[in-house]
Amino acid sequence: MKNKYLGYFTNGLIKENPVLRLVLGTCPTLAITTAAINGIGMGLSATMVLVCSNLAISLLRNIIPDKVRIPAYITIIAGFVSVVQMLVKAFLPSVDSALGIYLPLIVVNCIILARAEMFASKNSVLPSVLDGLGMGIGFTAVLTLMGMIREFLGAGSLFGITVTANHISPMIIFLLPPGGFFVFGMLVAASNAIAKKNGKKAVEHLGCESCPSRAACEKITENKEESSNEQ
């Protein structure tokens, strides 16, 4: 019994790490990881929203009508994001200014909506909270790691403390979007390599199964194949 609950929590850390294994929440991952401290700030803010929204949604899972569940989830999430945003603004103004628009944008962070839809709406309260906590910590860990790599290579510092910048000039590209994509790709490749070594499947297709435009997409591909056959 205890192991089962532990499993809900550890699931999001490595096995289904939201960023590296589910490839969710890519936008904040790429956008704010220019410094390690930003990664921690974004990760913890999202974790708090995730835990609270998972809690609320699992409590309300039998009341919310199925047809309007997505707007209902978004409303709940938006409520908690507002709370977190006000708290961060009040107590950590420097984190607030560093994260900027990406703090309110947690509302549309697909990790949170995905966990609401895939987990909290089907499970009871305690597992949902543990799932939210595990996913949130997994998210925070990857953001912090990425922030550390990019900050070290791009600014020559770690958590704001200068390390190498005085000796070698850092490569600014790591602070820019291309550097973000590069580090993200390297991390996914590394996690794939580790997963393969342990006999797990590598992330190759970025979740076509869960994509809302999948049907339309498949139709277009089929048409294309047909026309190329004609030629």
Binding site: S169, P170, M171, I172, I173, F174, L176, P178
Partner: peptide
């Protein structure tokens, strides 16, 4: 281009 973006002054 990577070098140009990374070390603009140099």
């Amino acid at each position: 281009i990577v070098l140009l973006v990374s070390f603009p002054g140099k």
